[in-house]
């Protein structure tokens, strides 16, 4: 099941060929290395454009949101078996 988190996170990544690729994020003072991006979507909440990433880190899945208007990152949900 997905556990709702909705907390701000810091993210580091690589910007190459007009695309930003997240590589690691920090949440609750802990760093998580991103192994794969399993799904990336561009969605709109009204006029607010958001990019949603589903990220695998150490065999855990995290749903992360980038708000493209105020350029903030949030951890929305994580998968718990």
């Amino acid at each position: 099941m997905y556990q709702t988190i909705n907390e701000p996170i810091e993210i580091a990544g690589v910007y190459s060929k007009s695309t930003f690729t997240p590589k690691k994020f920090r949440w609750r003072h802990k760093e998580f290395l991103i192994k794969t991006i399993t799904w990336r979507s561009d969605v709109k909440d009204g006029g607010i454009r958001k990019r949603l990433y589903s990220l695998m880190s150490a065999n855990e899945l995290y749903r992360v949101e980038f708000n493209r208007e105020n350029e903030t990152w949030s951890l929305l949900e994580m998968w718990i078996e």
């Binding site: 399993t38 799904w39 589903s54 695998m56 899945l61 998968w79 078996e81």
Partner: peptide, 9 residues
């Protein structure tokens, strides 16, 4: 399928 693609578990 898209949910399975998103979540390998």
């Amino acid at each position: 399928t898209m949910l399975q693609q998103e979540n390998p578990h």
